[in-house]
Nucleic acid binder design. Structure first.
Lengths: 201, 201
DNA sequence: GTCTATATCCAGATAGAC
DNA sequence: GTCTATCTGGATATAGAC
């Protein structure tokens, strides 16, 4: 009996993940309002009404995706923060890693795109708005700390750490959006161009 | 009679501009699908049905706005191109001008936001999609030319001009999006941070 | 030119059979 | 768990009076 309950629960979770994956794809490319429940259902291969066996509303799916996207992003940043390397190495690693991921990971690209869409629209569910407000500043704050540490170390150029952190993330975000919206395989720039913004020579 | 016809035409144009201004604001903040014709009509202070006296459809308004936004952007780039100053000066001027405009012009910010929304969604009218495809590469191409000229001059760092142009526009675009989506008065970074990406010291 | 009223359609969500 | 059928609301666009 316990075995069966567990199995059922797992199957339900699997099904929800299918829906999530499809919804991420659709929301990221078309946005919340242009995506119809039927589109998601068709993508998964289930009846339109069946979606409501797993979620209470379209908004619920959306908010869950936004939450996961933000958490995934922030977890990646915090992992970087804790690496046992000096600040300027963290920055070099982060830039190389981000450029590589932007160029090669479709899932990451879609996640970026979802967040960009959400951030750039006021017409999103209240729950999503709150999550974004609450979580979106963390990367900027953490990067400002790394930069300040690097300046103390003497490896990072002299400028307001907050401003440098702003340039750091908005540049990478701009590149991610650019990549996401071109179907062709646009190459990312040489990492050194970006690294040069921050490091003293 | 001719006098009257002219007056009527002008009044009609004025009314269309009112609609356009309101639609730009709404589309830029909420997107095409979340914006209802009634929202626009309410913003202008006219009945919902009256909009159709001036436009055939919501999509028509949208496509017209996209066209004007892209043309305005490209015209600004071309003006810069033709200024009688050396390449590295053009880059310095462009960065300073862009940062200043991002920080101070609400209209520009909304235009950026509209284009970002449109570029980042596949669910836009065919006409808008075509215009974007057709016009969005011009800034990248023109900037690559300026950069290549600056390299010949010896003032711009050694790297692929296309990649530098990519970093140039995506960085500024990232900053514009950032600014557009924060209600508070977020300061732009010191221009020298960005200028340093491109200029030899 | 402007309004009110309405035809029409579409999509989110629910009900109920299997 | 899954489907089909349906209720319901809301939004685009049109019609017609003033």
């Amino acid at each position: 009996m316990a075995r069966n309950q567990q199995q059922n629960k797992k199957m339900r979770e699997d099904r929800k993940e299918q829906i999530q994956a499809e919804a991420l794809h659709q929301f990221a490319t078309k946005g919340l309002f242009a995506t119809k429940i039927k589109d998601i259902a068709d993508g998964v291969g289930m009846a339109q009404g069946l979606i409501y066996h797993y979620y209470n509303s379209k908004e619920d799916i959306y908010v869950e995706l936004i939450k996961e996207a933000l958490d995934k992003m922030n977890a990646a940043i915090l992992m970087l923060m804790e690496m046992p390397v000096p600040p300027h190495e963290k920055i070099i690693m982060a830039i190389k890693q981000m450029l590589y991921t932007i160029e090669n990971s479709d899932d990451f690209t879609q996640t970026c795109r979802l967040i960009a869409q959400a951030t750039n629209s006021t017409a999103i569910p209240e729950g999503a708005r709150k999550l974004i407000e609450e979580k979106r500043d963390l990367p900027y704050q953490e990067m400002a700390k790394i930069i300040a540490a690097g300046q103390k170390e003497g490896t990072i150029i002299d400028a307001d750490p907050k401003e440098l952190a702003l340039v750091f993330w908005t540049s990478l975000n701009g590149l991610a959006i650019y990549k996401a919206t071109r179907q062709d395989h646009t190459a990312m720039p040489d990492p050194r161009i970006l690294i040069n913004i921050f490091l003293k020579e």
